[in-house]
Design a protein around this nucleic acid. Structure first.
Lengths: 305, 305
DNA sequence: GTTCCGCATGAATCGATAG
DNA sequence: ACTATCGATTCATGCGGAA
């Protein structure tokens, strides 16, 4: 039995982060408000001011992260005046100047991206997952995210959406083909730096910025049970919810009271022994006091070994 | 009848590009030697000197491109000393300073990427496809690259067995793919900015940097028959080969004599009238045998339309 | 209890219109 | 000229109700 805590802080993360100790966090996973987006809820940062706004926050995050911890930043620049804006590129350069190491850039390929048609560009179906580190020797538990591949072709086809199958069939040399034979016999393979996940909108009260499987993947990869995960822009609290389910301590910060209240209601922000889903947790509340209950099969996404 | 020409130039593209007229090229598609790769060519550019080396080339490319043309740059920064190097980010900023518009960044997702394992990162399965333009109004023929729509084709496929799908996938352009092509035109969707192509290893004699389907996609998207395609780092000539097959004029430059000779031998770098399918071409060969002229080295392909 | 069909809904972007 | 707002465009997914 591992006791995990979930802590929520209401406030601007530029100040709220000062509450956290140096070298106290194992993983920072966050998706800050994109420039000019969510102007109703957040300030709606101007693209030209984005680097200036985020850099001091990045400095605080550098302070609170453990030397062997990792910072994963989910972000995408917007198209403006016919061009992609450069603030994300400039942010990477600015963060290196204050001491961050830009270890890797992974791609989140969103299978169901926003529709639309324009004369000069196609739909944007990917976002950046920028990995920053404090030192070159950080914790990475690669085995935790290995993907199964016994009888690889069938598994691969199963995991693909119907759309993917259609499109792959219409292309030449699209990844199926003769190389399949190279994989048969292996049980598991390490993933690559491209993640293919759909955006899910399971949460009706709030449009989830990212699916639970996204923070889950990074929590598995960069932390162990009992470690601490931080999301300085927690929003609806997806990162915290997943961290708690995976028995990691979590800290979430948001400037908006409605998100703060929503997350508090959802995750029971005190020390707890939480393995149930929310509904079961509520229904089972009185019984929970001392006992660790069995977890239902559906609660944890199967790694399918 | 459309006459297309293929021109090859042996030399350093910094000088060779001066042979080309202003505003004479419709599409530039190239994959330059990555930093520290191909060390025998261009002296093996050091990452720290990459921007300085490439910027004058980018300036020449800006000059030769038509105002409504497009420049697609396939590039990926290497990992060095535990970090992703920043020269690609800096190159984008530098190119904007000399007048290029950074219209879009597309992702080439290489489904069967190079194997390997490292303690601090996963296999790199994507590369950048940076789209630059000279003006905000450029030619883009989106209908040429439409893909089958998911929900519609799903119904057609669901009755096929998994083995059918797998087996047919391993064949190129046969049977099943033919059926799919019949569906195209009934229900199609525009693609997104993520391209999923496998690296193909069809030709064993040389390793191409990219599969033919990559330049093919961009040639379809940004040019029409009779237009001119330029690859200033042609290497084994994949871009030129595809351009010629698609009835576009092409210009290729390489600094290595062995590549220059190889491409010359492969693509028949003279003016030719290549518009029929191969079978028709062969059957019709004697009729045209005298019409293939030799072209002067400095002659630029004539523009049709 | 399945399967199928219809429908709402997105971290969007452009071009036109209005101040 | 420069900025704010609005309508039009578009498609993968998951849900609910119906057969």
């Amino acid at each position: 039995m591992i006791a995990v805590t979930a802590k929520t802080i209401l406030g601007d993360c530029r100040e709220a982060l000062q509450e956290l100790s140096d070298n106290s966090v194992d993983l920072i996973f966050t998706s800050p408000p994109y420039a000019d987006q969510r102007s109703q809820t957040y300030g709606g940062i101007k693209p030209d001011q984005y680097v200036e706004w985020f850099t001091p926050i990045a400095a605080e995050l550098l302070r609170v992260l453990k030397p062997d911890g990792t910072f994963v930043l989910n972000i995408k620049e917007k198209a403006q005046n016919g061009e992609r804006h450069t603030y994300v590129l400039e942010l990477i350069l600015a963060m290196r100047k204050i001491g961050w190491l830009w270890t890797e850039e992974m791609i989140w390929h969103k299978k169901n991206c926003y529709p639309g048609k324009w004369p000069n560009r196609f739909r944007d179906s990917w976002e950046r997952l920028l990995q920053f580190n404090k030192s070159r020797h950080f914790n990475m538990y690669q085995e935790e995210v290995m993907v199964p591949m016994g009888s690889w072709a069938e598994k691969r086809l199963q995991n693909l959406s119907e759309t993917d199958k259609i499109r792959d069939n219409s292309k030449v040399g699209s990844g199926f083909g003769k190389n399949i034979s190279n994989w048969i016999g292996k049980e598991k393979a390490y993933p690559t730096n491209v993640l293919q996940l759909a955006t899910e909108c399971s949460n009706k009260s709030h449009s989830a910025a990212f699916p639970e499987s996204l923070p889950e993947w990074f929590i598995k990869l960069f932390t162990k049970e009992g470690n601490t995960v931080l999301d300085p822009f927690m929003g609806s609290g997806t990162t915290l919810k997943v961290a708690q389910r995976m028995k990691r301590n979590s800290v979430g910060i948001d400037i908006l009271p409605q998100y703060y209240d929503m997350v508090n209601a959802a995750i029971q922000p005190t020390e707890c022994y939480l393995f149930e889903k929310r509904e079961e947790y509520a229904a089972d509340n009185k019984k929970r006091s001392g006992t660790v209950r069995k977890r239902k099969h559906s609660e944890l996404p199967q790694q399918a070994s």
